[in-house]
Simulated scan of single mutants.
Amino acid sequence: MLTGKQKRYLRALAHHLDPIFQVGKGGVNDHLIRHVQEAIEKRELMKISVLPNCMEERHEVAAEIAEKAGAELVQVIGKVIVLYKESKDHKQIDLVGMP
């Protein structure tokens, strides 16, 4: 579980990132989850955009992706979801010694 300070720090780091994946009318499926898991292991922090044709509510989509991918939901702002998961092999973000 992330603290408020950690979330604020991660939001600042994610500000300049572009969304990697899009959730459209197909919604959340196993194919999307597998790709999110692979990408977040390498990046630790990522954005996903929810397209206007997605029938599900964006907060539900964010919670479902975070839970199934084993990631922490940092933020849902507008149609953009920010996720974080500590990498085992490609550690880049240090939440313990953050500024």
Score class of each variant (00 low, 15 high):
residue 3 T to S: 15
residue 4 G to W: 12
residue 5 K to A: 14
residue 5 K to L: 13
residue 6 Q to L: 09
residue 7 K to A: 09
residue 8 R to M: 14
residue 8 R to Y: 14
residue 10 L to R: 12
residue 11 R to H: 09
residue 11 R to K: 15
residue 12 A to P: 06
residue 13 L to T: 04
residue 14 A to W: 14
residue 14 A to T: 13
residue 15 H to W: 11
residue 17 L to S: 09
residue 18 D to M: 09
residue 18 D to Y: 13
residue 18 D to E: 15
residue 18 D to L: 09
residue 19 P to I: 07
residue 19 P to T: 13
residue 19 P to E: 01
residue 19 P to H: 07
residue 21 F to I: 10
residue 23 V to R: 08
residue 24 G to S: 02
residue 25 K to H: 11
residue 27 G to M: 07
residue 29 N to L: 00
residue 30 D to N: 06
residue 31 H to I: 10
residue 31 H to A: 07
residue 32 L to P: 05
residue 33 I to C: 07
residue 34 R to W: 01
residue 36 V to G: 05
residue 37 Q to M: 15
residue 40 I to S: 06
residue 41 E to Q: 09
residue 42 K to T: 05
residue 43 R to G: 03
residue 43 R to M: 14
residue 45 L to N: 03
residue 45 L to W: 11
residue 51 L to D: 00
residue 52 P to W: 02
residue 53 N to W: 06
residue 54 C to R: 04
residue 55 M to V: 14
residue 55 M to Q: 00
residue 55 M to E: 06
residue 56 E to V: 07
residue 57 E to H: 11
residue 60 E to V: 13
residue 62 A to L: 04
residue 63 A to H: 12
residue 65 I to C: 01
residue 65 I to L: 06
residue 67 E to P: 02
residue 69 A to W: 07
residue 69 A to Q: 12
residue 70 G to H: 01
residue 70 G to Q: 03
residue 70 G to V: 06
residue 71 A to L: 08
residue 71 A to Q: 04
residue 72 E to C: 14
residue 72 E to I: 10
residue 73 L to V: 00
residue 76 V to T: 15
residue 76 V to K: 02
residue 77 I to G: 13
residue 78 G to S: 11
residue 79 K to G: 12
residue 80 V to S: 13
residue 81 I to H: 03
residue 82 V to A: 08
residue 83 L to A: 08
residue 85 K to V: 02
residue 85 K to M: 02
residue 87 S to R: 10
residue 91 K to R: 15
residue 91 K to V: 14
residue 94 D to T: 05
residue 95 L to F: 07
residue 95 L to D: 01
residue 98 M to K: 06
residue 98 M to C: 03
residue 99 P to Y: 01
